[in-house]
């Protein structure tokens, strides 16, 4: 990129970084890249019921040159891999990739010669989304996590240096950006709960606990 690579470390970067990242994350434009059944869920997420328009990204661009987010929705065959890479290369930087569904993430149940075992063999992936296929909420969750991650991304080589220095000082957020489930992040009480649980290393237990509390039919084993 431009000016941020020429400036000495620390000048201008933090605020410009924040502004640029805020602009980036606030309006993703996805490239239309549906490959299999996950694409149906992706379309559903763009429709009125789930409405990705709430985050300014209901338009899936038919041209990769207008897109900055590629949602690889579905299994990538060996024959599709070069096409995928070409579309990725045609997208303007900065760009991100979500690998949607287990097939794109790791090959899923198709552990055979025809399917690329994870799209990260072909392009760098920013967010892995499991599920077969993931429900639209899961896709929205992945997008929100990616937005949070991008908000904290360093800008240029100096920005990366500053981030490393911050890490060396131990000045890192309790929860890594993009690790907290969206429904927890949007709710203040649950967010505090999650942060506390991460400190104790039991965030997955917290999730099960909260889920059990909400299940009335389990009250025999749990809610005494």
């Amino acid at each position: 990129m431009g000016i941020e690579e020429k400036l000495p470390s620390g000048i201008l970067l933090t605020s410009v970084e924040k502004l640029s990242n805020y602009a980036r994350k606030s309006s993703f434009w996805g490239a239309t890249f549906g490959l299999a059944c996950c694409a149906i869920e992706m379309m559903a997420a763009g429709g009125p019921h789930y409405d990705l328009g709430r985050w300014g990204m209901e338009v899936f661009r038919a041209s990769p040159r207008q897109a900055d987010l590629m949602i690889v929705a579905g299994r990538v065959s060996q024959k599709m891999a070069p096409v995928l890479r070409q579309i990725y290369d045609q997208m303007p930087e900065p760009r991100s990739v979500i690998s949607m569904g287990v097939c794109a993430s790791s090959g899923g149940m198709f552990n055979n010669y025809a399917i690329v075992q994870g799209v990260d063999h072909v392009v760098p992936v920013d967010m892995y989304l499991p599920g077969c296929p993931p429900r639209p909420e899961m896709l929205i969750d992945a997008i929100l996590k990616l937005r949070e991650k991008i908000l904290h991304q360093p800008l240029g080589p100096n920005g990366r240096k500053m981030l490393e220095a911050r890490k060396a000082r131990g000045d890192v957020p309790v929860v890594a950006p993009g690790a907290m489930p969206s429904s927890y992040r949007e709710n203040k009480a649950r967010r505090a709960e999650w942060e506390q649980a991460v400190k104790e290393g039991r965030e997955e237990q917290l999730r099960i606990e909260n889920w059990m509390k909400a299940q009335n039919h389990l009250s025999g084993g749990v809610n005494r």
Partner: peptide, 11 residues
């Protein structure tokens, strides 16, 4: 369980 928010940024 019914928990589904599983997306992470590394395999």
């Amino acid at each position: 369980s019914n928990e589904y928010e599983l997306a992470r940024d590394s395999r």
